[in-house]
Amino acid sequence: MLDIHRPCCKIAPPDLLALLAVNGKQPEREAAVRALATSAAIRSQRAVMGRFSRQLNLNIAQIAGFGVTPDRRQTVYDNQRMGRSFLPGVRARGWGEPPVQDEAVNQAYTGSATTYEFYRDVLKRDSLNGAGMELVSTVHYGVAFDNAFWDGSQMVYGDGSGRIFQVGGLTRSLDVIAHELTHGVTEFTAGLVYSKQSGALNEHFSDVFGSLVKQYSLKETADEADWLIGEGILVPTLGKALRSMSNPGTSHSGDRQPKHMDHYVDLPDDNDPRNDNGGVHINSGIPNHAFYLAATELGGYAWDVAGKIWYEALTTRLRPNTQFDEAAAAIVDVAATMFGSAEEKVVKKAWKEVGVLT
């Protein structure tokens, strides 16, 4: 049976929005309520698409009108800030076409292209599905919508209200774009169910590759990287970023991410946004910190060793209901197989330091 309640994967943690809806100042409350309402409205409409593509072997991108065509590697559309719910919107820029006047269109285009090139050049993957899937983006979704998400077939960006997210921040942030597009890679491979530990792993892998795409674009080593997800996209009064992989729980005023299993937050998956689908954004801090520890101890460019280990595990070893300990064991095994005992030791140590392995 299809799970029609399967949520879209959105960059804004729902527990943060729920917190602001209750405890924020009036402008924050209004923006948070609007973001939660818009997210709820689109969830049931789009939730089945990813599962169709995996379980029923249907190409949702082609059904939606997006194909696998060399001359259409990506297209950006404009929803025109009119509160429309239809996607993708009005065509704004196609593959190989020059920049346009709308900066959000150009940022979405460049971010998607950079992510595509990272997967192609570093991980030898041809787009999200491994078979040249066109990357489709829609900008200016809704009215001052404080979110961005992968909906199972395409990327969708709100403009931000200036009350929670900075106006224009969601298309400006490369790691946010790469994070959301990686949900597509996960959907086409491990298919990690978006609930509790498997959902936290889903968020974790998106944070890993979101950070690595940013590091790759800047040619930063693991020691040079800031390890922040969405740095500078929140309004300054809320915090510096959405998440910190180096120090979970410190990125913004509502950040309650743990970095060790001793502080795992056991929440129900009950459609209450305060519970974050059983803590998928919250508990992703634990595997995120494990990756940070492994990557920094391995040294050099994090995509060269740690990134390739995590990618191989995601695409070949994990399954929809994989739990933290199972993922850790698979990743340790991949490290040994791909590289050797030294790398295996480092990766195992990282998972032990966060309390997932003993």
Rank of each mutant, 00 (worst) to 15 (best):
M1K: 04
H5L: 14
C9Q: 11
A12C: 13
P13K: 01
D15I: 13
A18R: 03
N23D: 11
G24W: 01
Q26E: 12
Q26T: 10
A31C: 07
V33I: 14
R34K: 13
A35R: 01
T38Q: 15
R46T: 10
M49Y: 13
M49L: 15
F52Q: 07
S53F: 05
S53P: 00
L56Q: 14
N57E: 10
L58Y: 15
L58C: 10
A64E: 10
G67L: 15
V68D: 11
T69G: 04
R72G: 01
Q74M: 15
T75A: 12
V76D: 02
R81C: 10
R84F: 05
S85D: 07
R91S: 13
R91L: 11
G96D: 09
P98K: 11
E103K: 11
V105F: 03
A108G: 03
G111H: 03
A113S: 12
T115W: 08
T115C: 08
E117G: 00
D121M: 09
D121W: 04
D121H: 07
V122W: 01
L123S: 03
R125S: 05
S127E: 08
L128P: 00
L128T: 06
N129A: 11
G130N: 02
V136K: 00
S137E: 03
V143C: 00
A148E: 03
Q154R: 10
M155I: 06
V156D: 01
Y157I: 02
Q166A: 12
Q166W: 08
G168I: 08
G169R: 02
S173G: 09
D175K: 03
I177P: 00
L181Q: 04
H183N: 06
G184M: 05
V185L: 02
S198C: 12
S198W: 02
A200C: 10
L201W: 03
N202V: 06
E203T: 04
V208K: 00
F209I: 01
F209Q: 01
V213E: 01
Q215F: 09
K219A: 00
K219Y: 13
K219M: 05
T221F: 07
T221M: 02
A225Y: 06
D226N: 14
L228V: 07
I233E: 01
P236W: 03
T237N: 12
G239S: 13
K240S: 08
L242W: 06
R243W: 10
M245G: 06
G249D: 03
H252N: 14
P258N: 14
M261I: 14
M261G: 08
M261P: 05
D262K: 12
D262Q: 11
H263T: 11
L267P: 06
N271G: 07
N271V: 09
D276I: 08
G279W: 08
V280F: 07
I282P: 05
S284N: 13
F291R: 00
F291K: 02
A294T: 05
G300K: 06
D304L: 05
V305D: 01
A306W: 03
W310N: 04
E312W: 06
E312P: 02
L314W: 09
R317H: 11
L318T: 06
R319Y: 13
N321M: 14
Q323R: 14
F324L: 09
E326N: 07
E326V: 12
I331W: 04
A336M: 12
T337I: 11
T337F: 15
G340I: 08
A342D: 13
E343P: 04
E343Q: 15
V346S: 11
V346N: 05
V347N: 09
V347K: 03
K349E: 14
K352N: 12
V356Q: 04
